[in-house]
């Protein structure tokens, strides 16, 4: 057992590019959506709040894999144009984790003490200045742990693109398993795959911890 590492691991790692691309695309989309939707949910305008809430609840309430199937199998039959499988997977990941992360953004904005807002108003700051200079810098610090956790969840979520036949690491492992049917080979393949995901997730954990440390510098109350 564990003698085929030279053959199996490189084969799995050929899917690393797709995994990382799906993660980066998903993360970029998710965090853009999170900021927009998160702020929209704290808006004074009821209509903005309602639209953002519907969006968030829709993507939180249905399952990620269902959404991925929707983008990959249903969307092409509805839209007059085609989207690539990668785009379908990336959109599902971005929308789903964006909806979850928007809660983190919203929570953080609401967690900034009310006095900060009042102080900004008394300094005659505009709404935009108040957000940019006072609220968001403080909210950002509060968001970091949540965003970090969310990124790890997103990385794990990329494995679901296997279902829509995108050749990520999980998909490559499945091909390998099809060609090596001995029990010991199968255990070996998935052991390598598990450890590869673990090793990719580690930098995210350390990055989050480092950012949290940086962000808490010079702040009296943690």
């Amino acid at each position: 057992m564990f003698t085929n590492i030279g053959e199996f691991l490189p084969f799995i790692l050929q899917g690393l590019t797709i995994t990382v691309q799906a993660f980066l695309f998903g993360a970029a989309l998710a965090y853009s959506i999170a900021i927009v939707a998160g702020l929209a949910r704290t808006s004074k305008l009821a209509i903005v709040r309602v639209i953002a809430t519907i969006f968030v609840e829709l993507f939180r309430g249905t399952s990620l894999l269902v959404q991925m199937f929707f983008f990959a199998f249903v969307f092409p039959s509805l839209a007059p144009f085609t989207i690539s499988t990668f785009l379908a997977g990336g959109l599902a990941l971005g929308f789903n984790y964006g909806a979850y992360a928007s809660e983190v953004v919203r929570g953080a904005v609401l967690a900034v003490p009310e006095g900060q807002k009042e102080a900004a108003i008394s300094l005659n700051m505009s709404n935009f200045q108040r957000m940019r200079l006072v609220i968001l810098p403080q909210a950002f610090r509060i968001m970091l742990p949540g965003i970090g956790n969310n990124s790890i969840e997103l990385l794990k979520g990329t494995s679901l693109v296997y279902f829509i036949s995108l050749a990520d690491m999980t998909y490559r492992a499945d091909i390998l398993r099809g060609a090596n049917t001995a029990l010991s080979d199968q255990v070996e393949i998935y052991t390598y795959l598990l450890f590869t995901y673990f090793v990719i997730a580690l930098p995210l954990v350390f990055l989050t911890r480092w950012l949290e440390k940086q962000a808490s510098k010079g702040v009296s109350t943690a």
Partner: peptide, 18 residues
Amino acid sequence: EFIRMTPPLVQLFFVYFA
């Protein structure tokens, strides 16, 4: 930590085939 940081889908495959 290990279980939390690896995808449940891969864990499913691992246990299913092992």
